[in-house]
């Protein structure tokens, strides 16, 4: 409890958690996610991406700030709103976009789609379509590190909607009982599909949801990449010290609908506009960078490079072949 309260204060006034160069790199990653998702939205509109497609626009600071707090070899797992996490893990935008368009060159060779992508090489364990299921799975990633007695940490992301699932609390209990190195990250974007947090959760401060299990926690301004990084550093250090799991509530916001087919009648246009205008993670990071001496020109050049990279990914995704029909029968079982 004490940890949470002091941390809340702390997150309002973050220590400079990143060097100038690091912030520049973080800004680039957030921008890549933003541009990538805008392009994915366009391709969806063109019928090139189908099914469920959940965009991450607005929440970029969460995943980028956290990624800067971990090392290679640590694991990341999340739900179906996963494109940003994959790009933050440095998975290739071409492979991600090609999976979105259902092509053979996608990360899952066209058999997973938006919600089901993985890269063992990059430490990304999905991409899971069942709300809350990834929380137990992420606890298992932490378990495997505990079992192997290494000092790796697993980042387990879920939304505030998933935070009401029973297995989330089962996982909290297991993780702190066994002192597993898991950072649980609630991405509280205020709406679980169309149901606001006020209508879905009796808990008014989600960072307190780990208290019954004795889990330390922080409530963080998830629109500020520096605040996220600072909180991530504290949480990851706690895990690496063998003290068990840590809970972070990231207060964030998604600008787009729950998925592409969401009419978003549950909130006002003004609310979205206000968040974009006053709290956008890219705007605030950009302002920081300008204060640190980056020129408008340098930042424009960065954006242009990213736009070109995303266009390249989109071209790749559209020109890649669909999977061979024989692929329908592969990967059902590993041949023993």
């Amino acid at each position: 409890m004490a940890a949470t309260q002091s941390a809340t204060k702390k997150s309002k006034k973050p220590e400079p958690a990143m060097s100038k160069d690091e912030l520049f790199r973080a800004y680039g990653k957030m921008l890549l996610i933003r541009r990538f998702e805008e392009k994915a939205g366009q391709l969806y509109g063109m019928g090139l991406i189908a099914g469920f497609c959940h965009l991450y626009i607005g929440q970029e600071a969460v995943v980028v700030g956290m990624q800067h707090a971990i090392d290679s070899g640590d694991e990341v797992i999340t739900s179906y709103r996963d494109h940003g996490h994959m790009l933050a893990c440095e998975m290739d935008p071409k492979g991600v976009m090609a999976e979105l368009t259902g092509r053979a060159t996608g990360y899952s060779r066209g058999k997973g789609g938006s919600m089901h992508m993985f890269s063992k090489e990059k430490g990304f364990f999905g991409g899971h379509g069942i709300v809350g299921a990834q929380v137990s799975l992420g606890t298992g990633l932490g378990f495997s590190n505990w079992y192997r007695e290494n000092d790796r940490v697993s980042l387990t992301y879920f939304g505030e909607g998933a935070s009401n699932q029973g297995q989330v609390y089962e996982s909290f209990n297991l993780a702190n009982l066994m002192k597993l190195p898991v950072v649980f990250i609630i991405e509280n974007n205020r709406y679980s599909m169309g149901t606001s947090i006020e209508r879905s959760s009796a808990s008014r401060d989600l960072s307190l949801n780990g208290v019954p299990w004795g889990m330390p926690s922080l409530s963080v301004d998830g629109m500020d990449v520096l605040a996220v990084k600072a909180a991530g550093d504290a949480a990851v250090a706690h895990c690496r010290d063998g003290k068990g799991p840590y809970l972070l509530e990231m207060k964030t916001y998604r600008y787009r609908g729950h998925s592409m087919s969401d009419p978003a009648k549950y909130r006002t246009r003004e609310e979205v506009q206000r968040m974009r205008a006053e709290h956008d993670c890219l705007d605030s990071a950009k302002k920081h960078l300008e204060e640190l001496g980056y020129s408008e020109e340098e930042l424009k050049k960065l954006d242009d490079g990213i736009k070109a990279r995303v266009q390249e990914a989109a071209d790749f995704a559209q020109s890649s072949p669909e999977p061979d029909e024989k692929e329908i029968w592969t990967d059902v079982l590993v041949e023993a």
Binding site: F125, S136, L137, G140, L141, E170, N173, L174
Partner: peptide
């Protein structure tokens, strides 16, 4: 106790945990 592990009575959670561990090579 690291290889023979008592769990709480929470099948959903510990099964998911075991599946996650298997995905990571155990």
């Amino acid at each position: 106790p690291r290889r023979v592990i008592d769990t709480p009575i929470t099948e959903h959670g510990f099964t998911g945990m075991a599946v996650g561990a298997a995905m990571n090579g155990l």
